[in-house]
Design a protein around this nucleic acid. Structure first.
Lengths: 215, 215
DNA sequence: AGCTAATACGGAGACAGTCTCCACTTGTGG
DNA sequence: CCACAAGTGGAGACTGTCTCCGTATTAGCT
């Protein structure tokens, strides 16, 4: 029984290493906010008072660093989501959380550029890790569906993607207000039985197999 | 044929220059599709059979090149939009075009990474130039609103942003199908008078000034 | 056609950032 | 308190960006 039963592999996480790691992440966060995710890694290392080698041992690639910074931030938001769920009716909680998400992005509590920087885009960050945010979000949506406030056919993933997508327009002037309206648009869409517009007779080209399954 | 009469200043756009420029753009398009917009510029120059200097004279920055490639592509799609508008009822045309947009992205007829690469993101590419795509889109939406198929309150920009956002999830498994569903979600949302969910009594924190203007 | 000045070319090289390697230092368990 | 694994840092190889300028090409004039 080397270590205490579980994870008997690693010997111990040395103290200074831990400290360095944290400083790097902290400095990186600032740097990413200031110069975007293109910020010089060597520079980050320097400012964190460590050598380049140290930085690269902790975070082999730039993406690893970005991802770490990002996940650190994300936990706050996820926690908020959990809280909302306990204190509001389902649909309202969902909406409130989506708007809160926007607030986080707007207030730089969530580093936005990170969403673009990882290969595979925001997708991997959010979904790949099945991270706290995504989990919280799915939960809220499922809840709203179960309560009957949203249509059964609604795919939680769709809502998630649409919301995430919203954050890619932050360069536009009124993005925040727009994002909020889009949230309402999505929720409204997810409530009303989707009437196929007029009647979509005209055969689209590229899309052969659209299930007409909607009542 | 702008020349004759107008713009008497410039001497003439030398023939080889024009040729080179075109080759660079063509090669760049391939490169961007293969390696993303991070592709080496010197390498592009080499493959296009020109020197680095030549490339940089034509396109002082990477973004300039990306933008040029992008705009070249975009015209096709915009043209399609114009066509649809003439042959379908407004709302249907809008939906068809949004789906067509997705097809373009899916089929690599529109270079996707380009949307992420320009500082300011897709926003500047699409909106900044008030390019053909954006114009076509706004037109389709306005048409649908005028015909009464969409609610008056709907902001065309919102729809545009939401659609664009959709393309930032292409790394996810079922993105294309999801994107199509999101289109329907948006359209449905834009048709039904937005009932404030339940009743949004609970004061949200970050959003003070949401106009309750909806009936 | 022939001339010539404006225009464009291309690649060498200065510079900047990434990432590896390894001799050296430091914290920790015994 | 000591030995040694864990951790460090920075020199340097490498890769890509971008500029500068001597040389080549061409449009417009005669």
């Amino acid at each position: 029984m080397s270590r205490s039963a579980i994870t008997p592999d690693v010997r111990k996480p040395r103290a200074d290493a831990q400290r360095n790691r944290e400083r790097i992440v902290a400095v990186a966060r600032e740097a990413f906010m200031q110069h975007g995710t293109e910020a010089s890694l060597d520079d980050i290392a320097r400012r964190a008072g460590v050598g380049a080698g140290t930085l690269y041992r902790h975070f082999p690639t730039r993406e690893a660093l970005i991802e770490c910074v990002y996940h650190t931030e994300v936990e706050k938001l996820a926690a908020a989501g959990t809280h909302l769920q306990g204190t509001m009716p389902p649909l309202e909680a969902l909406r409130a959380w989506m708007l809160l998400f926007i607030d986080y992005v707007a207030g730089k509590l969530l580093i936005l550029p990170a969403l673009d920087a990882v290969p595979g885009g925001s997708a991997r960050l959010i979904e790949g890790s099945r991270g706290p945010i995504y989990g919280a979000f799915l939960h809220l949506i499922r809840h709203a569906i179960e309560s009957g406030d949203l249509l059964q056919e609604v795919d939680p993933n769709d809502m998630a993607r649409a919301l995430i997508g919203t954050f890619h327009t932050t360069a536009m002037p009124g993005w925040e207000a727009s994002a909020r309206r889009i949230v309402d648009l999505l929720i409204a869409g997810a409530r009303s039985p989707v009437q196929a517009p007029q009647q979509v007779s005209a055969g689209k080209k590229g899309a052969p197999s659209r299930k007409s399954a909607r009542r």
